[in-house]
């Protein structure tokens, strides 16, 4: 005979109580052994749901939304970082002279070799350099130490040409 899940078992589950920890529930189950398989299966099924990874059975729409949230946050962070860097650079240009000497740029056709560098925040940094002589290109990474940590006047990121050779 079909017997429904009794309301007092539902109430125990609603309260987060394991029915096996409740004496009345145990007595009821012993008095209704025909319900024991259903009870054991329900208990196992609910435990299985608890072990399931959150993404396993989430509807597609929710999954798509969850995926887009970190991507959106990452994009926002990138935009904020760019704006911050631009503000610092423009503030440095406006408020103080550049700490590095700005070389005079030759016309592209006259440049035989060039090296660019990028410094990073802190007193330690690194730069990648590309040297071109004729058709040969050399990529090199070097480390350096700055005299002082960057300030608002001295931006944390400076990209500049530090050496150039001009054909005669």
């Amino acid at each position: 005979m079909m017997r429904e899940l009794p309301p007092f078992l539902q109430d125990l589950l609603d309260r987060g109580v394991d029915p096996l920890a409740d004496a009345a529930a145990r007595d009821w189950l012993l008095a209704h052994p025909e319900c024991l398989p259903a009870f054991a299966t329900l208990r196992a099924d609910l435990a299985a749901l608890g072990e399931m990874a959150p993404t396993a059975a989430v509807p597609t729409r929710v999954r798509r939304l969850r995926r887009s949230v970190p991507l959106g946050a990452f994009a926002l962070a990138l935009v904020a970082l760019g704006l911050c860097a631009q503000w610092r650079t423009s503030a440095a240009d406006r408020d103080a002279p550049s700490p590095l000497p700005r070389p005079d740029f030759a016309a592209p056709a006259l440049v035989r070799a060039v090296r660019t560098s990028t410094s990073v925040a802190g007193t330690h940094g690194a730069f990648a350099s590309v040297s071109s002589v004729g058709r040969a290109t050399l990529l090199r990474r070097e480390e350096f130490t700055t005299a002082a940590a960057p300030t608002r006047a001295v931006p944390w990121c400076v990209a500049s040409v530090v050496r150039e050779e001009v054909t005669q």
Partner: peptide, 20 residues
């Protein structure tokens, strides 16, 4: 919410009875 939970559990419970 409570009613939805109860219905969901009742369906899982009935599944086992149905298998008998």
């Amino acid at each position: 919410v409570k009613s939805l939970l109860h219905r969901a559990r009742a369906k899982l419970w009935a599944r086992e009875h149905g298998d008998e």
